[in-house]
Design a protein around this nucleic acid. Structure first.
Lengths: 164, 164
DNA sequence: CCGGTATACTTAGCGTTGCAAAATAAATCG
DNA sequence: CGATTTATTTTGCAACGCTAAGTATACCGG
């Protein structure tokens, strides 16, 4: 623990990395489960929710190819996810008249409503978690999260992945 | 962003929560993908890796039921994961002589070796991520991560889940 | 000791992800 | 126009993850 202070210059201590690795693994695991819980009540899976969020973040509509790219999944997988989202009416498929190969996926009003409900529910549940930290700490956490995400993103060499 | 400073007392600002939610979702998503990448080179999936880690953390051997509990999965799922781990010789199944209903899962030397290799590979890859932060910042991050994990764990009311 | 209940796993069955490879269909290039 | 690229979908396969049902063992009251 205190070893951190002595990892000279900016070299990263092995033990620290290992501990970090373990904690991140745990975080991913537990947080994912938490997500799944709140979402399943709304009949959504996590990939579906993420997909809806990405669509919304891109103005409510974008070609399925870009969608696959933004979520870092192969197009075949995205086809399946959009299939299921469309079958429950959360999303609509329409071919682009200019390039009839392209399929544009659009968030329906229903989809938007569900997305909002999901977000509200999750926010409510997360508020309690964050209450364990002071406002200053929360600001700190936000900053670190943001920086870490950027590092992650740039490592995977995404050219201009418009964040989520 | 600056709103944080004004969320009086310790009430949590809605916008902050929403932003935090989004970032955590993104983190889980990207980090999981990163995990999958390094692990698939070793023929491991993330649930398999986690399972191996948990076994090791418990001294190299534990009943399959406790394993399911520790990873927060139903026993049927764990049966499948252990099946696959056993079929590649990373783990061994043996009935407890004292309670012949119970199945004890034991990490083999092979499993331990692979686990070590996986960890080494991941550590190497993560070292670069962490190099983007100063030692002080890394220490900060570790502390926040730890606290957050504790909050997460206690929220899901795990009685004495011996972390990972 | 016996029947009934609880416990520890495994099986069966189903739906969602996720990938690779092949198939389609439309655009584009020479 | 034929050949090649591009955008999606289809197909086929494996791993999760869950519920419900089955199996074997332990335990408990009488």
């Amino acid at each position: 623990m205190l070893a951190t202070a002595f990892s000279g210059a900016n070299g990263v201590d092995d033990l620290d990395v290992a501990r970090f690795e373990e904690m991140i693994a745990l975080l991913v695991w537990r947080q994912r489960r938490r997500f799944a819980q709140t979402l399943s009540a709304l009949g959504l899976t996590m990939p579906q929710f993420l997909t809806l969020m990405v669509i919304q973040a891109h103005g409510g509509s974008l070609p399925i190819g870009s969608l696959a790219e933004a979520t870092e999944q192969c197009s075949a997988t995205m086809t399946g996810i959009v299939d299921r989202l469309a079958s429950t009416g959360l999303v609509r498929r329409q071919r682009d008249p200019n390039d009839r190969r392209s399929v544009r996926v659009t968030l329906t009003a229903e989809g938007e409503a569900l997305l909002e409900r999901a977000r509200a529910e999750r926010v409510e549940r997360t508020r309690q978690l964050l209450a364990h930290f002071t406002p200053e700490e929360r600001a700190d956490i936000m900053r670190y999260l943001e920086r870490y995400l950027n590092v992650l993103a740039e490592e995977s060499e995404e050219p201009t992945s418009a964040a989520i």
